[in-house]
Write a protein that binds this DNA or RNA. Structure first.
Lengths: 181, 181
DNA sequence: AGCGATTTGTCAAGTAATGAACAAATACTT
DNA sequence: AAGTATTTGTTCATTACTTGACAAATCGCT
């Protein structure tokens, strides 16, 4: 499992960090491979040993965060929505610069899609249209409804630079999810 | 000039950083080579590609700081004592953890010696025993007097965890040097 | 559209770092 | 003091990174 050469981890860490830093300074499209390698203090060619191009690098960054969120979701599966959402918002808070970059700029609709897919996937297990308040509703429709709403609120939160503490965000999102699923 | 492989610089930086960090956590003698390589995220063997042992590594750290101080001294040679001392104390301030470690713990009399030697070397050019207030005094004696005093005050400053701002330290040390040289 | 400059992606040869192993030296225990 | 565990310093084959070069692609400019 952990037999990955530490040099690989070190350079990949440096590269990801460099991308995040640079994205807070200029538009992603204006960032050159050279910029990234300079910032990461790595030879330009080294980047191509790990990624196809800068988009692939960004992709991996996104993938990684999505996976962490999925993991946290699974681990908190038997908690109430409020609590599991809190785990997420804590993660948002911790990696604020990244998520803000990905969700608060209109330049990254791609990540929004990935994020939405994750939510749909995870909420699928939570919706119950057999009995209870949602009896008779179309499951896919319901899940889509909740997931879109969730993403929208999170986008709003980042775009407005944390108008409320992340705990409040979690609490209210949790309440709303609870009401609808 | 700048044709040193960046990998070398990176690992040496990491190693020095690791040593400084570890020294703030435990006695230098209790730090193992393994500790250092772990902290620096470097293979244990790699250390031996650069240094003989951990003492050699510490030596290089000291050497480097001494050289920077010497450099600053030379660059500020035509300034008044107060101003050139301020340049030094700024450097002390910036690398507080290192100097504090080296001067505030009785475990490192070696660095004190190096520091004193540097001062003697640099003050030699400033002392004038031909004319003026120091006419007739033994030059070596005078330089030794001033250098020892200087080191002693700096030690006091670190041991008492900055009892006065570094600007005050510089000002007063400058005044005292002026009075004696 | 054309041209010079920048950026990109790839490559080969060389160098540094890695992990694993090892015997020797130190440091703990009892 | 004997025995066991850590730590040390070296070695060696393998792998990752570096540098410098290169043609191709893309960008900016007029």
């Amino acid at each position: 499992m952990s037999k990955v050469d530490r040099r690989i981890l070190k350079t990949q860490e440096a590269l990801k960090k460099a991308v995040i830093e640079l994205m807070s300074e200029k538009n992603f499209d204006d960032i050159t491979i050279q910029d990234i390698s300079d910032r990461a203090n790595v030879s330009r060619g080294t980047i191509y040993l790990h990624y196809m191009d800068k988009y692939d690098l960004l992709d991996n960054l996104m993938e990684e965060h999505i996976n962490v969120l999925r993991e946290k979701c699974r681990a908190a599966s038997e908690l109430e929505f409020t609590e599991s959402t809190l785990i997420w918002t804590e993660y948002f808070e911790r990696h604020y610069s990244f998520f803000s970059m990905m969700l608060a700029s209109k330049g990254a609709p791609y990540f929004r899609g990935r994020f939405l897919d994750l939510l749909i996937e995870e909420l699928k297990n939570e919706a119950d249209v057999i009995k209870g308040k949602n009896e008779g509703l179309n499951e896919e429709l319901l899940v889509r409804f909740a997931a879109s709403a969730f993403v929208g609120v999170v986008e709003w939160w980042f775009m407005n630079e944390k108008p409320v503490p992340h705990q409040v965000l979690a609490k209210q999102l949790g309440t709303l999810l609870e009401r609808n699923l």
